[in-house]
């Protein structure tokens, strides 16, 4: 009886939470760096769902609260919710661009292919861009 009541409470709560946020398409963007990762959570150390290459098109998504109809902004716009194939995850805004970029792989396709990069190399290259502290000094 107790188990039944506990299960009933659990399912009713989960069904209540499931309906609070919905995801909608919010445009398209492309990866700017040689390789990148779509992360499970909006943190640099979060697990990678998939590795993608420069110029890969990504569907931008936005999360909207069903009741209040407000959009969730992730870390002051530093992260974007994206989808690629079956994967939905997070990628840093600085790694995306609205227009398809001129990638190194596209400018020198045979050279890049003939380097014979392994899957591990592609993974580490994507992680390189996750770990870079990128900045630029500005004019006053």
């Amino acid at each position: 009886m107790k188990t039944f009541l506990a299960l009933l409470c659990f399912f009713s709560l989960s069904s209540a939470f499931a309906a609070t946020v919905k995801r909608e398409r919010n445009g398209q963007a492309y990866l700017v760096n040689i390789f990148g990762h779509i992360h499970q959570n909006p943190t640099k150390s979060s697990q990678s769902l998939t590795t993608i290459a420069c110029g890969h098109p990504l569907r931008l998504l936005k999360e909207i609260a069903v009741e209040t109809k407000t959009e969730t902004v992730l870390f002051a716009g530093e992260w974007n919710l994206v989808a690629s194939g079956p994967y939905e995850g997070y990628i840093r805004q600085e790694q995306l661009t609205a227009k398809k970029p001129e990638c190194f792989q596209d400018r020198f396709p045979k050279f890049f292919n003939d380097l014979g990069l392994e899957v591990t190399d592609m993974f580490y290259w994507g992680r390189l861009y996750d770990h870079y502290e990128m900045g630029k000094s500005e004019q006053p």
């Binding site: 870079y132 990128m134 900045g135 630029k136 006053p140």
Partner: peptide, 24 residues
């Protein structure tokens, strides 16, 4: 906070529009 510190450092020395990538 190295990124911000180095950015301010470069600006303090009058070095502008210099991009950098720091890898720890």
């Amino acid at each position: 906070g190295i990124k911000e510190a180095f950015k301010i450092f470069l600006e303090g020395l009058g070095i502008y529009n210099q991009g950098f990538r720091i890898l720890l």
